[in-house]
């Protein structure tokens, strides 16, 4: 099967703090920086000096002492084995507590967990990354990896939609990528503010005009569920086969190791079978309300 999602054996429990999969492993905060008004990134390094290993699309459980634990996708470069980067919005107890930490603080990390954005299956095809809002963060490691092995792929398109110009995540990086001759970066906003002269409209519009060969492309999308549904429709309309489309799902998660039951979605555990799914395998599940 060409598009089977495989998991990195190398990632085997490497962050867990011992034989118990529920034990966090201490990581030191190197730096915390603001990305947007409500969004921040943090870089972490393991206290025990071990390597940071993850595959693009995977997530970790981050624990703040005494406050709690949350699942957050890795947003950093998978080729960097010493630093772990996470990007998230400060909206809940734990993410706000993470945001308020200072360099030098210790957080608990368990992971990496879950399925990856499969790039190996896409060798020789065009790559289309379609992100909405904070959904660019979980896709960024895959984009890094694709750029690091640029020769393996055809055209690469990064299509990004944000609510307003102020909500454009990783904007400096997007500009840097846009300056390259070997990648097509397009950004749109739902609502123009200030002196924005760029595109206005849904990210699906970018799919209609994006520079990729739909019959020979592999697409990766991450964002709000309703956005991803429309993205899949647009990709399919342009002719991208459904089994060449991957998306990342989010559900409540307490353990990330298949015990707590919270992340069940149909017969899948998002923590183990996801978060990245191939669209054709979950199309029936995705279209049922409140499943």
């Amino acid at each position: 099967m060409r598009h089977a999602i495989k998991k990195k054996e190398a990632s085997c429990a490497c962050y867990s703090g011992g034989a118990d999969p529920m034990h966090p492993r201490p990581f030191r905060v190197l730096e915390i920086w603001k990305e947007l008004s409500d969004t921040f990134s943090m870089s972490l390094t393991p206290e025990d000096g071990g390597p940071v290993i993850f595959a693009p699309g995977q997530f970790n459980m981050l624990y703040v002492f005494g406050i709690g634990e949350v699942p957050i996708s890795v947003s950093g470069d998978p080729t960097n084995r010493s630093v772990l980067i996470h990007t998230t919005r400060a909206v809940g107890n734990v993410s706000k507590a993470l945001d308020s930490l200072k360099a030098g603080a210790i957080v608990g990390v368990r992971g990496p967990y879950g399925s990856e954005w499969p790039l190996a299956v896409a060798e020789g095809t065009d790559l289309v990354f379609v992100a909405g809002g904070i959904g660019l963060a979980p896709l960024r490691p895959a984009i890094y990896q694709a750029m690091a092995e640029r020769h393996k792929y055809g055209n690469i398109a990064v299509l990004y939609g944000a609510r307003t110009p102020e909500d454009i995540l990783f904007s400096k990086e997007l500009l840097r990528w846009k300056a390259r001759f070997d990648i097509d970066v397009q950004v749109t906003v739902d609502r123009a503010t200030g002196n924005w002269q760029g595109r206005v409209g849904l990210v699906t519009k970018l799919i209609q005009s994006g520079g990729f060969d739909p019959m020979n492309a592999t697409a990766y999308t991450c964002g709000p569920e309703v956005m991803m549904r429309h993205v899949v429709d647009s990709l399919h309309e342009r002719g991208v086969p459904l089994d060449h489309i991957y998306l990342s799902m989010e559900r409540n998660m307490k353990c990330a190791v298949g015990f707590c039951g919270h992340c069940q979605w149909g017969a899948s555990f998002i923590c183990r079978d996801g978060p990245v799914f191939r669209y054709d395998k979950i199309v029936d599940t995705l279209n049922v309300r409140e499943l």
Binding site: K7, K8, A10, C12, A19, V257, G258, F259, D273
Partner: peptide, 10 residues
């Protein structure tokens, strides 16, 4: 099988 997300509760 940690690579496949299969763990046991000690």
């Amino acid at each position: 099988k940690c690579g496949a997300g299969i763990f046991s509760d000690p």
